[in-house]
Every structure is written in C-alpha cells, then in structure tokens.
Amino acid sequence: MFQHFLHCSPQTAVDTVGDLMNVRLNCFDHLEREELPKLADQFGPDAYRTIASFVESLKDWLAGDHAWYPQTGRYTVGLA
C-alpha cells in the first residue's frame, strides 16, 4: 500500500515506514522521559501517577500490537 502511495520500490517503502515508526517511537520516548515529569510539577503527584499509569498502558498496548502483526499472517500476503 505504502509502496503504491509513494510510487517507490518495496524496499524503499519498508525503509520509509521503518523510519517513520522509529521517529514516532522516539517522540513517545521523549515525551515520557522529558515532558511527563514536568506534569508532576504543574499538576501534582496524583495527576502525574495517573498519567504515568496511562503511559505504561500505552507502552503495553504498543508492545502487544507489535507482537500481534507478524503472528496474524495478515501482512505476509505478497511477500513470498
């Protein structure tokens, strides 16, 4: 799909999607490490714990989603 959207080779599409995913995950990591602690100063420790718990849930979801994709077989069509 991405290959057709960008009119590029399969490898270029894979590389581009991989780069995009890495940028998004790095942004998420930055927010967790740098921005989230500032919320504790602004809203107090209770709000910080609530938001930190939500972020941990998001990380679990991302990990589960990442593990699910290769197991489904859904995204292997045309890769053989």
Rank of each mutant, 00 (worst) to 15 (best):
G64M: 07
V17Y: 02
H7M: 09
E32M: 10
F5R: 14
G44K: 00
R74E: 08
G78H: 01
S53L: 06
S57P: 03
M1T: 10
G18A: 07
Q3K: 14
A13I: 00
E32S: 06
Q71D: 10
M1D: 14
H66R: 13
L25Q: 09
T12F: 09
D41H: 07
G64T: 08
E35G: 00
S53C: 03
V14Q: 11
A40I: 05
D15T: 05
R33K: 08
M1E: 15
H66M: 14
W68T: 11
H7D: 15
V17P: 01
A13C: 02
A52R: 10
K38D: 05
L36A: 02
H30R: 09
E34R: 08
T76F: 04
N26G: 04
W61N: 11
W68Y: 14
S57W: 08
C8V: 12
F5E: 12
A80T: 14
L79P: 10
V77D: 07
L39Q: 04
P10V: 11
Q3G: 05
T76M: 07
A67E: 09
H30N: 03
K38P: 04
G64P: 02
R24H: 11
G18H: 07
G18P: 02
H4Y: 12
E32K: 09
N22Q: 10
E35M: 10
T16F: 06
V23N: 05
D29T: 03
D15C: 01
E56K: 15
M1A: 15
Q11P: 00
S57H: 14
R74F: 05
F5L: 14
P45R: 12
N22R: 10
P10T: 06
S53Y: 05
G73R: 00
F5I: 15
Q3L: 03
D15Q: 07
T72I: 02
W61F: 13
D41L: 10
G64V: 07
Q11H: 02
T12R: 12
V77C: 07
E35I: 13
V77R: 06
L58A: 08
Q71I: 04
H66Q: 15
A13Q: 00
Y69V: 05
L39M: 08
R24C: 11
D65T: 12
F2T: 14
G73Y: 00
A13Y: 00
R24I: 15
M21Y: 12
T76H: 04
R74K: 12
D60P: 00
R24P: 04
S9Q: 06
K59L: 02
C27E: 13
P45C: 10
P70F: 01
S9M: 02
V14P: 03
E56M: 11
M21A: 14
N22F: 04
D29W: 06
G78S: 01
L36V: 00
Q11N: 05
T72R: 04
T16A: 09
E56F: 08
L31K: 09
E32Q: 12
D46V: 08
A13V: 00
A40N: 10
N22K: 05
F43W: 12
N22G: 08
L36K: 00
R49T: 07
W61D: 13
C27T: 09
V23W: 09
Q3R: 11
M1Y: 10
Y69C: 05
Y48L: 04
V77H: 12
Q71H: 07
H30D: 02
I51N: 01
L58M: 11
W68E: 15
V14I: 14
L31I: 09
D60F: 08
P45V: 12
P10M: 09
H7Y: 06
M21K: 13
R24V: 14
